[in-house]
């Protein structure tokens, strides 16, 4: 597998590099290749998310941090022996663990047997949507996704507690980090509406194709990050003021929770979407739509808030 070999090369290069800018770039490439690998392994939703999050958001956040902390790494003073031993033992344990593992692609493997067939056979019927990943994500294991939304929300709270979102000369309207680039401005102006439209499509089309609230939230946030980079943080903040973001994030998780509580008051278990309508499958549809909306709102606002917090930070003197 060529992809896997490339991944190994990138990982090795990332270990050796002292220029952190290159390391971050390598990591983004690594994520993108992983996403390609996921496509190959039939995980389209995961590939989509990995590309948007790993290659996109994580990379941008890391670069924003490097702007503040400096680009070069010092050579470590201690030797690599002890870490190598720890890594060696851990790796050996993992390899040992895979020796009895079912072979890749084996349809008789336990993973394919017990729980999974119901998702594949009944998912499209019981939950009423062709994308089984969305059905499992938002309905069968909707509570995990509820927790996941809280994880993102928690990260937002943590970053705001640590950094807050600063106001300064750089964040006033009309200032840009990269200067006035005419070509970029024209191109980005044309691209942004497309990104916004695509985000909406991904948000509401998750039942049928790859995508959903999480991916849509990230894409929407990227549109603003792009606008921010080209037209300046100040202008971006005029469009979406930072003080809205944490409130919006809170509203998103509360929307998800409210759907759950609604079922509770209707006498059904928490997050049982069939309580939302007379016809259970119809209720599932409505429930998934609403919780995905909540996820999208939270992810969008928290990702953007974290970006503002890092990119708007003044350099320590």
């Amino acid at each position: 597998m060529v992809l896997l070999a490339f991944l190994v090369l990138i990982a090795l290069a990332a270990i050796r590099m002292r220029d952190l800018f290159i390391v971050v770039m390598l990591f983004s490439v690594y994520s993108l290749m992983t996403a390609a690998l996921f496509m190959d392994l039939d995980a389209v939703d995961v590939a989509f998310t990995e590309a948007a999050v790993g290659a996109g958001v994580t990379g941008v956040l890391m670069l924003s941090t490097l702007r503040l902390t400096g680009r070069w790494e010092r050579r470590p003073s201690h030797g690599p022996l002890l870490p190598l031993i720890v890594v060696g033992i851990t790796g050996a344990a993992l390899i040992y663990g895979t020796l009895d593992a079912p072979l890749l692609g084996d349809p008789a493997a336990p993973v394919q047997q017990h729980v999974a067939p119901r998702y594949i056979e009944q998912g499209p019927v019981e939950v009423g949507m062709p994308n089984m990943v969305t059905a499992v994500l938002a309905s069968y294991r909707g509570f995990d996704t509820f927790g996941e939304t809280f994880v993102i929300f928690t990260a937002g709270i943590a970053v705001l507690l640590l950094l807050g979102i600063q106001e300064g000369p750089e964040t006033r309207p009309g200032r840009t980090a990269i200067g006035d680039q005419l070509v970029l401005r024209v191109v980005v102006k044309m691209v942004i509406p497309l990104i916004l439209l695509y985000a909406l499509y991904v948000q509401f089309h998750g039942d049928f194709g790859a995508g959903g609230g999480f991916q849509a939230g990230v894409i929407l946030a990227t549109a603003f990050v792009l606008y921010d980079l080209v037209f300046g943080e100040g202008d971006a903040r005029l469009v979406v003021p930072p003080s809205w973001l944490h409130r919006l994030g809170a509203l998103g998780v509360l929307l998800y929770g409210a759907v759950g509580l609604y079922a509770l008051f209707a006498g059904k278990p928490f997050l049982d979407y069939s309580a939302l309508a007379h016809d259970p499958v119809h209720g599932q549809h409505l429930g998934v739509l609403l919780v995905e909306l909540g996820v999208g709102i939270t992810v969008f606002s928290i990702v953007l808030a974290i970006f503002y917090a890092l990119s708007g930070r003044r350099k320590a003197s």
């Binding site: 790993g54 890391m62 994500l137 994880v151 990260a155």
Partner: peptide, 28 residues
Amino acid sequence: SNPLPHVLILTAIVVGVATTAVGLALVV
């Protein structure tokens, strides 16, 4: 292919980026 690992990993990706973000804020 089995959708369940995909769902688990979607969650894990989110956890990963959340941890990275908090870590970066701490570094700053």
